[in-house]
Design a protein around this nucleic acid. Sequence first.
DNA 1: CGTATCGAAGCATAAATTATTGACCGTCGA
DNA 2: TCGACGGTCAATAATTTATGCTTCGATACG
Lengths: 285, 285
Amino acid sequence: MSPLVKIRSERDQMSAVERRIADFILENAQLLRDYSSQQLANALGISQSSVVKFTQKLGFKGYPDLKYSVGEAIARADNGDATHVATQAKAAFDESASGNLWRRKAESEEETRLINAPETLQAVAEAIATAGTKGKVFMIGLGDDDIYARSFALRLSLLGVPSIHNFDAPRMAASVSAAGAGDVLLVFSEHGNHPALCKIGRFFRERRGRLITVTRHTSNPLRAIADLALLVSAHDDRPYIQPVLYQSALQHLLDGVYVQLCEGDEQRHVQLLSNLERVQQMLEP
Amino acid sequence: MSPLVKIRSERDQMSAVERRIADFILENAQLLRDYSSQQLANALGISQSSVVKFTQKLGFKGYPDLKYSVGEAIARADNGDATHVATQAKAAFDESASGNLWRRKAESEEETRLINAPETLQAVAEAIATAGTKGKVFMIGLGDDDIYARSFALRLSLLGVPSIHNFDAPRMAASVSAAGAGDVLLVFSEHGNHPALCKIGRFFRERRGRLITVTRHTSNPLRAIADLALLVSAHDDRPYIQPVLYQSALQHLLDGVYVQLCEGDEQRHVQLLSNLERVQQMLEP
DNA sequence: CGTATCGAAGCATAAATTATTGACCGTCGA
DNA sequence: TCGACGGTCAATAATTTATGCTTCGATACG
């Protein structure tokens, strides 16, 4: 992945100094060519070691490695900002605008894919699968987040995994009181700081259920108490674009889990196909 | 000028050692990334200072400068894929599965984009915009299709365009009886052959409302009676993948309309931003 | 509250990498 | 033959990068 995309995706979780480094690099990527780590540090009035530690935290071998990567990125011109500025200039709705939106979605998808370990996705799929056969699957999301919960619940039902779906906290609290070991609660909450949802989550865990959260990748109280946390990364300066990207990235994350559920187990796969056929028959005639 | 071209062009006037360096770099440019000047010297059995002198003779500031330039050149030319692929080889299975799904989504998006004329999208956006200020926006979808209606309704509400949203046919029939000229009815129906929805659509048109349908691109009775028809193309042999692609392509189509609505009109844009801010404030504290 | 803990940041310094110096050696032309 | 010259290298200086340690402030906890 482009180092610039990576930097931007993690910018939100950075400390003040780190964020200043990130911003400087994002805005002056071309200057990096002539900067040593010391010069960069001077330009920002911080210590050279902070620069090095910054690069290492991002997963680069060190400062020269980052520098090299940024050089490649610039050469490819895949910094994602230039195109993005070009979009804004154009008010007209045309192919390039739509194409750009898709490109931005692809970036969010990539960022999101990279911050979720494949093992986590696997684990989520398995937890849902076992809860689906031997226990119960609970699901909740408020406001916009209800959309994701709802659509995922529909998908699961096709797999023969019914779920208990609520869209307000009090009712969910009541439902969850019936939970037990091995059950799963999926909580969708973009910012993950809704007190009621945290409360329900904690309560659910007390009852020995597995708590799966789906939130933005910033650290948040909900994610903190989860057994399994799915994270979504999506950024855009334009406040009306960001939710579009968030939804798209989140949806793809869930689609990944869904596909894994579909393909993971032979028996479930057969069940799925027959369900789909039955649904088809109900709708057609 | 590309450093690789430069090296090749001066190769003939070089000394034996220099030529060996040149050849090595030309043939193993990707390896340079992980080589220090000392390592390169060792690989060739020559002294490190020869390497540095070589770079300086070519007009580079020094070894790191050459290295950086070669990195750029590789990135531009795309010759260096070998290393790139090798780096990402880990987690190959999951990544490729997920990446594949995304690629399929991109294909559906493209097909969908191509079968919807930009003018149609424009017209849809405008119809919704005017109905939003001077009339009413109705919205309906059944089953899975309700998801799209619901999420689009939420988006519209942020734009200051409230909508009358129902998820069953009888109630919608009742609601629609209040419709008049200039109003808009959005009907989501994947296969477009639900008799009740067709009936509602016809009834709505009798009352001089604009009927907008969102269906699969196959010909279907619902689409046939629409004033404006948005079409979605999404295919996959695997029956559990197809809905995923359908949803993604449809979502992107709607996102396009949404963005168009956001950016199309200055006044609405301002309204949107203040709405977003207000929503933000409601959620944060 | 006081205190333990953790992480972020800087300073000092070790380690590494890079650049330069000066010595050596072979070649070539006078 | 000898001196000039270019090329190479080893040694070393200079620079750049990486790391260990300390301090400080925020946060959690008793």
